[in-house]
């Protein structure tokens, strides 16, 4: 391995992990050894500073990040609502026919297509009397009021 180690590789090595080739490089390369020492010093320094007392002025007036996000979202929502109200056309009562009228028209159309003019007359309840009259006038019926046309003679 000839190229110098990245910061992440160096950090992984200081954590006690990493590959053998990287560790070999660290032992051979003066620059990487120096960088690794510097990294360890930095971490010790930061750890030490955080282990000590919190210096004055650090937590004064610090807002939680969530509060900032919540306020940002609320303000954005209000602005969006105002813009939508401003740009929307004024409200007018609708002049379109009611949906019920449309429904009735559709039913009428359906009825006309099912019971149209070209369908047999029998299908209309109002023409049943005409059909009955025509049927009766077509020929004599055995059930005519005058009785049966043929007399049945007795066998015995």
């Amino acid at each position: 391995m000839s190229a110098c180690l990245t910061d992440q590789e160096l950090w992984v090595l200081t954590e006690g992990a990493g590959e053998t080739a990287e560790r070999d490089h660290l032992e051979r390369c003066a620059l990487c050894s120096y960088r690794a020492r510097q990294l360890e010093d930095d971490l010790a320094l930061v750890g030490g500073a955080l282990r000590g007392a919190c210096p004055p002025g650090v937590s004064a007036g610090v807002r939680p990040k969530m509060v900032r996000l919540t306020w940002g979202a609320a303000v954005a929502l209000v602005v969006f609502g105002l813009v939508a109200l401003w740009s929307a056309p004024p409200w007018r009562p609708s002049t379109a026919p009611l949906a019920r009228t449309d429904g009735v028209a559709a039913l009428t159309e359906l009825s006309a297509s099912v019971f149209g003019e070209d369908t047999p007359e029998i299908s209309r309840a109002t023409d049943l009397d005409v059909v009955a009259t025509a049927f009766e006038s077509a020929g004599p019926s055995e059930w005519q009021p005058g009785g049966c046309e043929f007399e049945i003679e007795p066998l015995f």
């Binding site: 320094l45 030490g48 500073a49 955080l50 282990r51 000590g52 007392a53 210096p55 004055p56 002025g57």
Partner: peptide, 17 residues
């Protein structure tokens, strides 16, 4: 109070925090 507190200046510690 740690030895690092004494070594580091207040400004440096504040920056780290």
């Amino acid at each position: 109070t740690t030895p690092e507190d004494a070594l580091l200046g207040v400004e440096a510690r504040r920056a780290i925090w």
